[in-house]
């Protein structure tokens, strides 16, 4: 019983991770559904979110010293809040450029889309290295959200609860957009059948751009929220795009709850394996991917998978 109880914090960790993975996966899935292209650079957008957040919070900004000093004097709580809001907005233009580039590969052999997005991911990683260097960074977290507390004789991390809460809020927002707005209906319809949507007078290209922006901002948001847990390093993008793909394979393309539950599953595997060997928790994600792809190709919820090529 004692060991099971000790697992609880790791379970919570897993759920938190899972929610954030689900968030990344949702953005990834919205784009995938509408563009039918896998964006290997999605993780880079996640990474940029973390780096921009760091720049805002640390702060390390290219501003004149007195302005920077004034900003640094602002309480960390406000700076962190600013980062959560601003970082996704700052990353959005990168998403726009990426969408523009991906347009040219639309309809061609999927190999080109893979090579293109892979190349962009490498370029973005190089950009990150150039601007911020190769060392690891830690995103400072305001005192109110950091530290730990004791409950049930166990130590819990405060930030994890905050992160989970932020993730839930964001997911609720995505749900509302997808299920309750006309935009969401257009996205769902367009993902299912791009021709009829156009024949109804909807500009599919513009729709794709907006979806891309949304997906980008979700990835960047997740990057900000996950940064204090994972640390910030140039190659962190891969660790975001792989779970996104894994969740799509598990939950299918086009299902909100598939992504949510798939995310929780993956998060819990990573979180719980962290209980036994913290260093190997990320590895468990890759092993899970290999296992899942080997065993099944269709998702649990979604129907036809556009990935089956």
């Amino acid at each position: 019983m004692g060991t099971l109880l000790n697992l609880l914090p790791h379970l919570v960790n897993g759920i938190t991770l899972g929610l954030l993975f689900a968030l990344i996966a949702l953005g990834f899935m919205l784009i995938l559904g509408l563009m039918e292209q896998i964006n290997l650079a999605h993780g880079s957008l996640f990474a940029l979110g973390a780096y921009f957040a760091y720049a805002i919070c640390a702060p390390r900004l290219p501003l004149p010293p007195d302005v920077l000093g004034m900003w640094a004097a602002v309480p960390l709580g406000w700076r962190f809040a600013a980062a959560v809001v601003l970082a996704p907005i700052l990353v959005a233009p990168f998403g726009l450029v990426l969408e523009r580039l991906m347009r040219r590969t639309y309809g061609r052999d999927p190999l080109y889309g893979l090579l293109l997005t892979f190349g962009v991911a490498m370029v973005l990683e190089e950009l990150i290295r150039m601007v911020w260097g190769t060392r690891d960074y830690i995103l400072p977290v305001p005192r109110e959200m950091s530290g730990g507390f004791i409950m049930l004789d166990l130590i819990w991390s405060t930030y994890r609860f905050w992160a989970a809460a932020l993730a839930i809020v964001a997911m609720a927002g995505v749900w509302a957009i997808v299920e309750r707005t006309r935009f969401g209906a257009m996205v769902k319809a367009g993902a299912h059948d791009s021709e009829i949507v156009q024949a109804l007078g909807i500009d599919l290209t513009r729709l794709r751009v907006w979806v891309f922006v949304l997906g980008t901002m979700l990835a960047a948001f997740a990057g900000v929220v996950l940064a204090p847990l994972w640390g910030i390093r140039p190659h962190m993008g891969v660790d975001a795009v792989v779970p996104a793909f894994l969740i799509i394979v598990l939950g299918g393309v086009g299902s909100f709850w598939g992504a949510a539950i798939g995310g929780l599953l993956v998060g819990m595997v990573v979180g719980l394996s962290g209980a036994y060997a913290s260093e190997w928790s990320m590895l468990s994600m890759y092993l899970l991917l290999i296992a899942v792809v080997t065993l099944r190709a269709r998702g649990l919820f979604g129907k036809k998978s556009v990935l089956e090529v």
Binding site: K188, A189, H192, I196, G254
Partner: peptide, 11 residues
């Protein structure tokens, strides 16, 4: 009005 109607099934 296409021959396969093409409604979005989940809506």
């Amino acid at each position: 009005v296409p021959d396969d109607r093409r409604l979005c099934p989940t809506l």
